[in-house]
Design a protein around this nucleic acid. Structure first.
Length: 172
DNA sequence: CCCTGATTCGC
DNA sequence: GCGAATCAGG
């Protein structure tokens, strides 16, 4: 399949809505996320919702030799749109009761992810003993719609893991 | 290991 | 222009 106007338009829409490349690829069908990303770049709509400027120069270390290295002019990077209003669609009632690990040594207080530090995208896997000073949260990056990071989500939802990222595609 | 976007380059 | 392969990272 190729990029007709409809597909490009849908791509723009979904991309601006904050869907990931693979989600969009999945939606368009018969296309990979690489194709989507490539198209996005060609269309010049890359770079949405970045918090800080990483400023890492690309650098392709192991590639077939590249004779002339051209200096790259540091793109201005106009980014906005930081917040993607995330709503809790459904925190599962079948909430797993993860067993907190009672370990001897815990993170220093300064690094702990407390309830105050939790955001939409921080893993809420409890660590330490609840109700005590040693209690905190995993705090790693959680997956969209999930209260846990991918690691802990695996532990949490072992048998049934039906729901995925298809919720928002229901109306299409 | 799952995922994310970014980049390069042969086609 | 296209996108697989690759890179860098969460």
């Amino acid at each position: 399949m190729s990029w007709n106007d409809e597909r490009v338009e849908l791509l723009k829409k979904l991309w601006s809505e904050g869907l990931s490349a693979s989600q969009i690829a999945n939606e368009l069908g018969d296309i990979t996320r690489n194709a989507v990303i490539g198209k996005v770049h060609r269309l010049g709509l890359s770079g949405r919702a970045k918090t800080a400027a990483p400023a890492v120069r690309p650098q392709r270390p192991t590639r077939p030799e590249n004779p002339r290295e051209q200096s790259r002019p540091q793109r201005p990077m106009t980014q906005g749109n930081t917040a993607l209003a995330a709503e809790f669609d459904d925190l599962p009632e079948e909430a797993p009761a993860p067993q907190p690990q009672a370990s001897g040594n815990v993170l220093p207080m300064a690094q702990r992810c407390t309830i105050m530090n939790l955001t939409e995208s921080t893993c809420r896997w409890p660590m330490g003993e609840p109700g005590t000073e040693s209690f905190y949260f995993c705090g790693a990056k959680s997956n969209p719609g999930m209260p846990y990071c991918s690691h802990h989500a695996r532990i949490a939802y072992q048998p049934v893991q039906d729901r995925r990222r298809d919720r928002r595609l229901a109306y299409l």
